Amino acid sequence: MKTLSIGSYTLESGQVLPDVQVAYVTHGTLDAQGANAVLVTHGYTSGPSMLSPGHHTAEGSWASLLGPGRPLDTDRFFFVCSNMLGSAFGTTGPRTINAATGKPWGPDFPAVTLHDIVGVQHRLLEKLGVQHLRAVAGPSYGGWQALQWALQYPEMVDAAGVLMSGITHPPGLGAEEQRKRFAASPQWHGGWYYEHGGMFDTLFEMRLQTLRNYGLERLYEDRMPTAEQRQAELERQSRDWADKFDPNSMVVLAGAAEHFDVRPRLDEIRARLLFVVCTTDKIFPPDPAVTQALDQVRGEKRYRELDSPYGHMASGVEWRRLEDDLRWLLP
C-alpha cells in the first residue's frame, strides 16, 4: 500500500482539509494516454486491499478475479483501489493528527459527503496520471461510490459496477445512530477515546455481530466442521479488524452516506451499468421498486439477482459467478 498527498481539499461544506493523504494500491500498468484505468471501490468498514491476495474484507476479496487474462485483466487495465476519505486504513480521517491541535481530529473531523469522497479519489487519479476510467466498480458502499462517479464525472467514466448495494441509503444507519451505539460504551469518552485505551472491546463485539449478519458464519459452515472452529475464526477476524478500525470513522462515513439517494438522477446516468443484488442480502435485498427505478437509466445495463446463501458477503464469496458480469462490464 502506498500513500500520496493530494494537497488541501475544499469539502462540499466549504471547510478546507489541509494536506489530505490518500492510501491506495495499484495493479497493472497505466497506458501512455492515461485511459485504461479501473477504480475499484471498497465497502463501509474495509480498505484498499480488495484486490490484494491474503486480505479479506467484509465484502470478500476480489484477488482471485485479478491477473493476466482474468476478468480484472492486468494485461489490459490499470487498477486503482484507494481508501475512502474519512476511513481508517491510511487516508486522512478522524484518527489523523489535526495540525491545529496536535491531537487526532476525533469527533471534530468535519462532515463529508459522497461527493467529497469521490472528489478526493478524482484528485488522486489526476496525480497518478489517470485521464479516463474504463469503469468504477465495488460492493456495498463501493457501489454507491460507483454511482456517484457516474453522476459526478460522467465524461470520465465508461461503466459503473454496483454489487450488493443500492440506489439510496437504508434507514437507521446514519451518523447519529452510530454515535448513539458507541456512546453506550464506557470506552467512548465522547469520542475522545484515543488517550483512554481505545474501544477494542466495543468494536470486537460489534464486528462479531456484523460478520454474522453479513453471512460469514454460513460461509464457514462449508469450510469448518465444528461450531468451535467457526466461532474461533469469527473471533480471529473480529479481533484483527477491531485492532485497526476507528469508531469515529464509522460515524463519519455513515454521515457521508445518510443523504445518498440517486433516484431523482438515474436518467442522467450514461455509463454502462452493472447492478447485482443477492437474494439473501439483508441490507440490500432484491426490491421491485429498485428494478423499476433502474428503467430510467438510459445507457446499456445489466441487472442480476444472484441466488446465493451468502447474503451481503456474496460479492466476494461468489466471485466465480461474477466473472461473466465483470467481463461484460470491461469488454
Score class of each variant (00 low, 15 high):
Y9I: 07
E12W: 00
Q15P: 00
L17N: 09
L17C: 12
P18E: 07
A23D: 10
Y24S: 10
T26K: 01
D31M: 03
A35V: 01
L39A: 13
G43E: 12
G47I: 04
P48I: 04
T57S: 15
G60Q: 11
G60M: 10
G60W: 06
S64H: 08
P68A: 15
G69P: 02
D75Y: 01
F79C: 01
V80F: 10
A88V: 03
P94V: 01
T101K: 01
P104Y: 03
F109V: 09
L114P: 02
G119M: 05
G119H: 04
V120G: 12
Q121F: 05
R123Y: 04
R123Q: 15
E126W: 06
L128D: 04
G129K: 08
Q131S: 13
R134Y: 03
S140I: 09
G142R: 02
G143P: 12
G143W: 12
Y153M: 12
Y153I: 10
V157T: 14
D158F: 03
A159F: 01
A160E: 10
V162C: 08
V162E: 03
L163G: 00
S165E: 05
G166K: 05
H169C: 06
P170Q: 02
P171M: 02
E176F: 00
Q178R: 11
A183S: 10
G197T: 00
L208M: 11
L211V: 03
L216K: 03
D222T: 15
T226Y: 06
A232H: 14
Q237K: 12
R239V: 09
F245T: 14
D246W: 02
V251N: 00
A256H: 08
R265W: 12
D267Q: 14
R270Q: 15
V277K: 05
K282I: 13
F284E: 08
F284G: 04
P286V: 11
P288H: 07
E300P: 12
L306T: 09
D307F: 08
S308W: 13
W319N: 14
E323H: 06
D325I: 11
D325G: 11
L326T: 06
L329P: 06
P331Q: 11
